[in-house]
């Protein structure tokens, strides 16, 4: 086969296109136990982008992240999810995680008898990292010999969860409510660890779900989307954040509708 300059151009462009858009979520509708939670949502995550998904409690933000990672019980009823050019919509969570997706849970479960150290060491064995160094970054060395999640304060639990993500070395982390129920000092530590996490990923991108947007004091989004009642109503630049703080979600959505 003769490769023409034109051919090379198209091949390179195709590769570029696939890599530039890391995650494509198209027309995604999701149900849990037969009840539709989110409808017809579209989000594209490009390289070097920090996407904030904002919305009031119960709007479906966490379900959206769970659908992307393929959490059991979260059923995609329409639309598709494409990660690194591969349609992963029907794939199990184990496969999606092996491909580099991960989810920081809003409230991780308590694991009886499982020490924090044991989990970090097991992850670091897989990915090649230093559990102590990670624990130092999140200031949780004192939790290493405790049972995971047991008796942790809100801030400690979030710090422990981000530590897990650092050890996991994902390609694209999805982070659910890193700032809810967290004291000011912890937010600063969590934010700086999330920045480190993003910087260590190949795409330097993430989706962060937050209803209070407190984390925005430390991490600036490149794209902000507002989800209300299971639908992403609109997306915009970082300026949307200040409008959310002024008007609240529902008022903002109403205004946006009026403006068409």
């Amino acid at each position: 086969m003769v490769i023409s300059p034109k051919h090379i151009f198209y091949e390179v462009s195709a590769v570029k296109l696939v890599v530039e858009i890391v995650l494509k979520v198209r027309d995604l509708s999701v149900a849990i136990s037969g009840r539709v939670i989110i409808r017809n949502n579209n989000v594209f995550v490009e390289r070097n982008s920090v996407v904030f998904l904002l919305g009031p409690n119960g709007s479906g933000k966490s379900t959206f992240l769970k659908a992307i990672i393929g959490y059991p019980g979260v059923e995609v009823i329409s639309g598709n999810i494409v990660f690194e050019g591969e349609d992963i919509t029907g794939k199990p969570m184990e496969y999606r995680v092996s491909k580099g997706l991960t989810l920081a849970h809003q409230t991780p479960p308590k694991l009886t008898g499982v020490r924090m150290r044991q989990l970090l060491e097991a992850l670091c064995k897989k990915t090649g990292c230093d559990p102590i160094e990670i624990a130092s970054v999140l200031e949780i060395k004192h939790l290493l010999d405790r049972e995971f999640g047991k008796g942790f304060s809100g801030g400690e639990l979030k710090r422990a969860e981000i530590a897990m993500l650092l050890a996991q070395k994902p390609k694209l982390p999805l982070i659910d409510e890193p700032d809810s129920g967290v004291d000011v000092d912890s937010i600063e530590i969590i934010a700086s660890a999330i920045k480190k996490l993003i910087s260590e990923t190949p795409y330097k991108s993430t989706i962060i779900v937050t209803h209070s947007a407190q984390i925005s004091k430390y991490i600036k989004p490149t794209l902000t989307c507002i989800m209300v009642s299971g639908e992403i109503k609109f997306c915009g630049g970082p300026e949307l954040l200040s409008e959310v703080f002024i008007h609240g979600f529902r008022e903002l959505v109403r205004e946006n509708k009026r403006e068409g």
């Binding site: 991960t102 849970h105 989990l119 897989k126």
Partner: peptide, 30 residues
């Protein structure tokens, strides 16, 4: 074994079998 504990560990990058192993080990660890 609580499914949400298994799922949590799978989301952390463990296989299902590894996740169950970690939970059982935790259960018997005193």
């Amino acid at each position: 074994i609580a499914e949400d504990e298994i799922n949590y560990l799978i989301s952390r990058g463990f296989t299902r079998e590894e996740a169950v192993g970690i939970i059982i080990r935790g259960f018997i660890s005193l």
